[in-house]
Design a protein around this nucleic acid. Sequence first.
RNA 1: GGUCGGUUUGCCGAGCGGUUAGGCACUGGUCUGCAAAACCAGGUACAGCGGUUCGAAUCCGCUACCGACCUCCA
Length: 489
Amino acid sequence: MQNKLVLYNSLSKQKELFKALHPPMAGMYVCGPTVYSDAHLGHARPAITFDLLCRYLTHLGYKVRYVRNITDVGHLENDADEGEDKIAKKARLEDLEPMEVVQKYMNTFHRNMDQLNTLKPSIEPRATGHIIEQQEFIKEILKNGYAYEVNGSVYFDVVKYSKSYQYGKLSGRVLDELQTSTRSLEGQDEKRSPYDFALWKKASPGHLMKWPSPWSTGFPGWHLECSTMSTKYLGEEFDIHGGGMDLLFPHHECEIAQSAAAMGKESVKYWIHNNMITINGQKMARSLGNFITLDQLFSGDHPMLDQPYSPMTIRFFILQAHYRSSMDFSNDALKASEKGLQKLMNAITLTDKLKASPESTIDVNSLRGKCYDAMNDDLNTPGLLSCLFEGVRYINSVNDGTETVSAEGLEILKSIFRTFVYDILGLKDETETKEDDGLKEKLMKIIIGLRQEARDNKDFKTSDKIRDELKKAGITLKDRKDGVDWEIE
RNA sequence: GGUCGGUUUGCCGAGCGGUUAGGCACUGGUCUGCAAAACCAGGUACAGCGGUUCGAAUCCGCUACCGACCUCCA
């Protein structure tokens, strides 16, 4: 399969032409959330970034298997592989079963993802559903000699691994340097090296989520689930692994090590990482407590928010920056996105009303080419939007009569917007209603007719009253040379 | 302290060796009874200092500031 899609691979630290291992199939694994509290703005970034990638690959003709996990066990409060499980802690605080916590926040996450118009993953595996597979994975690593058991817990032997493989190749870390920057070693007595990480942890008495295993009644380490589940659903080698940049080390580095230790080869061909969303210049994170949840953004219910922002405004905001750039939250930026999105959507609505001419004064084919060029260049959505706004100007100019477009050109123009805005960027018109537009059209025609009569009679008091009252009702009139357009907010 | 990345016009944000990015805001104009929308025009920015080059926001060096990772984090 031929394509010109170039993606930045975190592993090689350069842009590479995307070549699927088994075209037309494309396999993509993305690290999903740990479901112990509401999803925030930061979670929207990878969700939208990899939704975009999935949509674009699909558009290019790939049959994409998109796997995104739900972490529902094994994620400890503070690593060093000590501390309380995040979900168990929440369960204790809210007096719920751990699985109730998981269900509650998973439901919210799914609802938010639907609101953001992200496509559902092909498979959404959960760590607790793959305890057996994780144990089998550990057995392989043990068999190959890259792990050891101590007191019922199993740890990955980073030092031994690094003799045969390069631990740190993804994150650019060197083991020697890691060792000189040693932190507190408290509670790490069981590990041979502080860089070893848990594959299986023996549960302490009273621990809520635990399963029997050959080593102890316990639970799997966090890094293990992704290696296990990606292998199970995408195979020992697959195309793309995505996630936030903050997961690059240690999480993804450990995944590479686990897979290599178990299977003798690296699993992932392209590592893709999205950058962070900051707030007041600092990363938005649950652990920092500086987050705004998606529900708060949608409702405006947060001290830092001037107003509510719709899901599509959030989506547009995120797409206006390149996925590898960090972006800072601000009301001004969000408001600008809201306006820009509206301008884009208004133009798309207009395309249905445009009249074709014998000749085109605009070059729609060139525009389409530029749209593809932008997407092929490592998903350059700001560049794509820039092209689309050029198209917006075309549409408005044709509507104003200062440019013309042929029937064929008009069809191409419509298809460009349908393809790139709806199918690939995943934006949708939020003003769209399922009501019968026919009735609304008829009513509006009558009202506009009455206003026109008043205007013809120079009765501007009446005509303005009609316009103002409509405005109050959320309907904006736009007088044109050749008639009146209207728009519902 | 180590590793990596960033600093672009009022704001957001592309570009990464030579050509108008784009959006928002602002100013002027066209249109309009007025308004809104739309269109046209306007601002010539790239942290600082050096260097390479015919030519640098774009490459190299230094300095300053900011951030991410090195604990869990999307």
